[in-house]
Amino acid sequence: DEDELTGILKKLSLEKYQPIFEEQEVDMEAFLTLTDGDLKELGIKTDGSRQQILAAISELNAG
């Protein structure tokens, strides 16, 4: 699971946030449920980064 998540972050060039997800024990299943508020709480402060992550999440959820 973590590897898939790392792959997604790398694709977005946001792998610098990978340790945050690891630290908070966010797995792929949890990742797919994250909201903008969750990402802010995790410490992802950049709007653009959150938008990219949320776009990836909705794409993955759309299947």
Results as ranks from 00 to 15, higher is better:
residue 1 D to N: 15
residue 2 E to R: 15
residue 2 E to M: 15
residue 2 E to N: 14
residue 2 E to I: 15
residue 3 D to Q: 15
residue 3 D to R: 12
residue 3 D to E: 11
residue 4 E to Q: 02
residue 4 E to Y: 03
residue 4 E to I: 15
residue 5 L to D: 00
residue 5 L to S: 00
residue 5 L to F: 11
residue 6 T to I: 04
residue 6 T to P: 08
residue 6 T to S: 04
residue 7 G to D: 14
residue 7 G to R: 15
residue 8 I to K: 09
residue 8 I to T: 12
residue 9 L to D: 00
residue 9 L to F: 11
residue 9 L to E: 00
residue 10 K to P: 03
residue 10 K to V: 02
residue 11 K to Y: 03
residue 11 K to P: 01
residue 11 K to S: 06
residue 11 K to R: 12
residue 12 L to W: 12
residue 12 L to T: 05
residue 12 L to M: 14
residue 12 L to Y: 15
residue 12 L to Q: 03
residue 13 S to V: 03
residue 13 S to Y: 02
residue 14 L to G: 00
residue 14 L to D: 01
residue 15 E to K: 00
residue 15 E to W: 02
residue 15 E to A: 07
residue 16 K to P: 13
residue 16 K to D: 15
residue 16 K to A: 15
residue 17 Y to N: 06
residue 17 Y to V: 05
residue 18 Q to G: 11
residue 18 Q to K: 14
residue 19 P to Q: 08
residue 19 P to D: 13
residue 19 P to S: 11
residue 19 P to L: 04
residue 20 I to E: 06
residue 20 I to N: 13
residue 20 I to M: 15
residue 21 F to L: 08
residue 21 F to A: 05
residue 21 F to G: 03
residue 22 E to Q: 11
residue 23 E to H: 04
residue 23 E to W: 00
residue 24 Q to M: 09
residue 24 Q to Y: 10
residue 26 V to C: 05
residue 26 V to H: 01
residue 26 V to E: 03
residue 27 D to H: 07
residue 28 M to Q: 07
residue 28 M to E: 04
residue 29 E to V: 06
residue 29 E to K: 15
residue 29 E to C: 06
residue 29 E to I: 05
residue 29 E to P: 11
residue 29 E to H: 05
residue 30 A to G: 11
residue 30 A to Y: 08
residue 31 F to T: 02
residue 31 F to W: 04
residue 31 F to S: 03
residue 32 L to R: 14
residue 32 L to T: 09
residue 32 L to G: 07
residue 33 T to W: 04
residue 33 T to H: 13
residue 33 T to I: 03
residue 33 T to P: 01
residue 33 T to A: 13
residue 34 L to R: 03
residue 34 L to H: 05
residue 34 L to G: 03
residue 35 T to A: 05
residue 35 T to C: 05
residue 35 T to Q: 13
residue 36 D to W: 01
residue 36 D to Y: 03
residue 37 G to E: 13
residue 37 G to T: 12
residue 38 D to C: 01
residue 38 D to T: 05
residue 38 D to V: 00
residue 39 L to V: 03
residue 39 L to H: 01
residue 39 L to G: 01
residue 39 L to N: 03
residue 39 L to W: 00
residue 39 L to D: 03
residue 40 K to H: 07
residue 40 K to Y: 10
residue 41 E to D: 12
residue 41 E to L: 08
residue 41 E to H: 12
residue 41 E to G: 11
residue 42 L to S: 06
residue 43 G to F: 03
residue 43 G to K: 06
residue 44 I to A: 03
residue 44 I to N: 02
residue 44 I to K: 05
residue 45 K to L: 12
residue 46 T to M: 13
residue 47 D to T: 13
residue 47 D to E: 14
residue 48 G to K: 10
residue 48 G to A: 12
residue 49 S to G: 12
residue 49 S to D: 15
residue 50 R to F: 00
residue 50 R to Y: 00
residue 50 R to M: 01
residue 50 R to D: 04
residue 50 R to H: 03
residue 51 Q to W: 01
residue 51 Q to P: 03
residue 51 Q to V: 07
residue 52 Q to K: 11
residue 52 Q to N: 08
residue 52 Q to C: 10
residue 53 I to V: 11
residue 53 I to W: 00
residue 54 L to A: 05
residue 54 L to W: 01
residue 54 L to Y: 02
residue 55 A to P: 03
residue 55 A to T: 14
residue 56 A to K: 08
residue 56 A to F: 07
residue 57 I to M: 03
residue 57 I to A: 07
residue 57 I to Q: 10
residue 57 I to G: 05
residue 58 S to I: 03
residue 58 S to L: 06
residue 59 E to N: 08
residue 60 L to G: 06
residue 60 L to Q: 10
residue 60 L to T: 08
residue 61 N to V: 05
residue 61 N to R: 14
residue 61 N to E: 08
residue 61 N to P: 04
residue 62 A to G: 14
residue 62 A to S: 11
residue 62 A to I: 06
residue 63 G to D: 07
